[in-house]
Nucleic acid binder design. Structure first.
Length: 115
DNA sequence: CGATTGACGTACG
DNA sequence: TCGTACGCCAATC
């Protein structure tokens, strides 16, 4: 069985960065997309997350939100509140499906990994 | 096979 | 400054 999911696919790159997000931190689709050089293909990052649950190891997609810190993909975690629960469990405060202090909790791959 | 949608973001008016 | 339009690429209908 051949698996081309070896950093070859754009999705795998997204998974790699998402997995690098430290606990208690969050990042945005655009940040990952831009880090990969496809800032305009931010949508693809979201699509990649679509398979994040079936990837191994599992990808902490709950730490990935849109650029405003809104849990846009909360509905894809099985339950519309699962994402919020996971974030709060990591110490991240979520209010109205929105991450509090998102700017402070924001984990920029380009800045952290490029440092 | 063609059109539409989708976990977003940037550009333009 | 706020609102609207477009782009991106893949999957689904």
């Amino acid at each position: 069985m051949k698996k081309e999911s070896n950093l070859d696919s754009f999705f795998e790159q997204v998974y790699a960065v998402a997995r690098l997000v430290p606990r208690g931190r969050v990042t945005s689709y655009g940040a990952i997309a831009k880090y990969l050089g496809t800032a305009r293909s931010s949508r693809m990052v979201g699509w990649a997350m679509n398979g994040a649950h079936q990837v191994k190891p599992k990808v902490p997609a709950h730490r990935v939100v849109n650029r405003v810190g809104v849990l846009t993909g909360k509905h894809h975690f099985g339950s519309p509140t699962k994402m919020k629960e996971l974030l709060e469990k990591e110490g991240i405060k979520v209010k109205n499906d929105q991450v509090k202090d998102f700017k402070e909790l924001f984990w920029d791959p380009m800045k952290e990994l490029s440092l």
